[in-house]
Design a binder for these strands. Structure first.
Length: 322
RNA sequence: CGCGGGGUGGAGAAGUCUGGCAUCUCGCUUGGCUCAUAACCAAGAGAUCGUGGGUUCAAAUCCCACCCCCGCAA
């Protein structure tokens, strides 16, 4: 029945997105018969060590499916607004586009701009909701499909789904969960929304919490903090911006670690040490408790397990990281 | 030409500047000690030092070219 209705309606959809994790949403729409008329992605930019210009992941996916791609340098330009207008979209779907969508663009589609936000709005509005959930130690997370308005992550809700967040959840595992939950939710919600089966509900602004835009500096570890806090940072901030410290003037990334809040040592905060009973483990003293480091990387070198690191870097053990 | 580090037995490192016997911490094999062990002791195997060329009596080390990995930056 739904299929029949949809084919009559033949909705015109524009998809806006940029990074890798927006691709499954685009593919989900295509797979369920909601193939966009056009895709808008950020301009190609220099990327990687060689700074070669590469198309965005969403652009590459779109081209693979033969969907035309627009890459406006500035969305506010009248040219682009008119161009998008001329495509006569019924709805625009936005997944991690990476720029604020101007009001003039939000006003174009009659069914509005539908956004996927990886948190249970109004909690964790803003640019880093997944990281925020882990940093705060949330035990529950989810995905929200919402209508965009002129304030960021503020518009009315169309649908939400939730799931538990594990105690050892990392950014990457949480993102996988979010994607596998969010992709079907988006397509189902979009279908219902297009046939007017959903009544949008306003968010409770009083309950809103906000996540910050992460910067490179967000990943620098302060050993004054508790081992619990540092462990959460390690789980939340890898692979980007990454968590790191400096040991004997060398940058050391901490890729995986777990907190032992009850373990107390005499070492100065930030000191790398071993214990006689667990010789394959690498510890570091924190403000409160001790962090056990299981995977780490010295600048210019490969990622190592604690055991391999200990084998080759005896000289660093006993020194203090800052 | 964005800046920089690296490739050495199975793992991780030192040695390279200043050319001269292949080193360290592990792992592995065998034997020993032990009620026992991830502990300890002893012996042993295992390497064309990323690839190709050059210099030299002699190259992991110096010179040239190439391949691969990574940190920063974006």
């Amino acid at each position: 029945m739904i299929e029949l209705q949809m084919s009559k309606i033949a909705p015109r959809i524009i998809f806006m997105g940029t990074p890798e994790y927006a691709v499954p949403y685009l593919e989900g729409l295509i797979a369920s018969g909601l193939k966009p008329e056009a895709v808008i992605s950020q301009p190609d930019r220099p990327v990687g060590r060689k700074q070669t210009i590469e198309p965005t992941p969403v652009k590459m996916a779109a081209l693979k499916y033969g969907i035309p791609v627009l890459q406006p340098e500035n969305l506010r330009d009248h040219e682009w607004i008119e161009k998008i207008h001329s495509l006569k979209p019924d709805v625009i779907v936005v997944v991690a586009f990476g720029q604020i969508i101007p009001k003039s663009l939000l006003a174009i589609p009659p069914r509005g701009c539908v956004n996927v936000h990886p948190s249970l709005l109004p909690y964790h509005r803003g640019p880093s909701p997944l990281q925020e959930a882990i940093l705060r130690g949330d035990t529950n997370g989810g995905v929200t499909i919402m209508l965009m308005d002129e304030k960021v992550d503020h518009g009315p809700l169309l649908h939400q789904a939730s799931f538990p967040i594990d105690a050892n959840e990392t950014y990457e595992t949480l993102r996988e969960k979010t994607t596998s939950c969010g992709v079907p939710l988006l397509t189902a919600t979009l279908r219902d929304w297009l046939v007017e089966k959903i009544t949008p509900q306003m968010q409770d602004d009083d309950e809103a919490t906000f996540s910050r835009l992460l910067t490179r500096d967000s990943g620098k570890i302060s050993w004054e903090l508790s081992s619990d806090d540092i462990e959460r940072s390690v789980r939340a901030l890898n692979p980007w911006p990454g968590t790191w410290t400096t040991c004997k003037d060398k940058r050391v990334k901490i890729l995986e670690a777990y907190s032992i809040p009850t373990m107390i040592s005499d070492h100065e905060r930030g000191t790398l040490f071993q214990t006689t009973d667990k010789q394959n483990q690498l510890f570091i003293a924190c403000g409160i408790g001790t962090l056990s480091i299981s995977r780490l990387q010295l600048e210019g070198k490969k990622v190592l397990s604690a055991k391999d690191f200990i084998a080759g870097h005896q000289g660093l053990i006993g020194s203090t990281c800052v």
